[in-house]
Design a protein around this nucleic acid. Structure first.
Lengths: 155, 155
DNA sequence: TCCTAAATAAGAATAGTTCTTATTATTGAA
DNA sequence: TTCAATAATAAGAACTATTCTTATTTAGGA
């Protein structure tokens, strides 16, 4: 759960600068929430962040944790594990395959590739456990969204 | 949204056989729900499947759609788009990286690899739109879960 | 055809997340 | 440092996706 001290310092610096640059207030809550997420390598959910921060700031609310995590996402200071959809999307394709995913509209399409099915994984990856398979998610802007972006010129 | 007629037939065959082999009843609802998910390439969520099936079976319930989709998952006849967690998990790592994910306990760990950052993608993938980046998810059983499986022998 | 277990519809319940509102705190200005 | 304006917070209501409960219906074997 621990990252290097100097990596944490670097992340905290980025965070404080991002807030200052945009005139966003630096509250105790935001600092503690950022410190918590930035120092962990286990990809906690909002509830887990809330539980930890609560030991230091007993009156913090879960809502503030959510708002702050979303703020951090908007600022590009954190991301999520996997692409998030509001609901589960199902996939009837039983063959090994990978996905193209439009980050704008959520369009998802399958494609096959035996090269990608059989990637040579770095030792680091293999070291975490016994590998079953791997899935490549290609993120992009789909053709429709590209066309829409070209058509509607900003005024 | 359309797949080949013979691919659909093949999927329907697998489905009916899987139910028969296990003595699971073939209901109208199950057949229509499977037909719907099996014939689409757009990875719909339960609500979208429900809306379509409802036009043919007006009395079907959303709950039945959920139960059936989960049954199909348990039977290995469908999967989901991306690995699903009950809640959103956050990631403070801003460097390009990939993930190891334990399918048993949900442990997630980062690893870096410039090779994987710069994969040579098949034309099929590039054809869907403008690519931004790609993320590799390595699915497996983490070391802790492997040890647990070895320690607790089945009786 | 009849019987029985399994499956369904309907609606209540739950989990995760977001919204509303009254209160509090940050930050720039005096 | 104090003050004022405005943003941010806590609390709880509300909302969305999903699952559970229960009375009713149905598939499939005898």
């Amino acid at each position: 759960m621990i990252i290097h001290e100097d990596e944490l310092e670097k992340r905290l610096g980025l965070f404080q600068k991002a807030l200052r640059d945009r005139g966003i207030k630096l509250t105790h809550q935001r600092l503690e929430i950022f410190r918590e997420i930035a120092s962990r390598i286990d990809h906690p959910d909002a509830e887990a962040v809330y539980r930890s921060v609560k030991t230091r700031l007993p009156t913090v609310s879960l809502d503030t944790v959510y708002r702050t995590l979303h703020l951090l996402m908007d600022l590009g200071l954190i991301g999520t594990l996997g692409d998030r959809f509001t609901s589960t999307r199902f996939d009837p394709n039983l063959k090994p395959h990978h996905h193209f995913l439009c980050v704008r509209c959520g369009l998802a399409r399958d494609f096959e590739s035996s090269e990608l099915d059989n990637l040579d994984l770095p030792e680091a990856a293999e070291g975490f456990g016994k590998v079953i398979d791997n899935n490549v998610v290609v993120r992009g802007i789909c053709n429709d969204c590209m066309r829409a972006a070209e058509t509607v010129k900003p005024r």
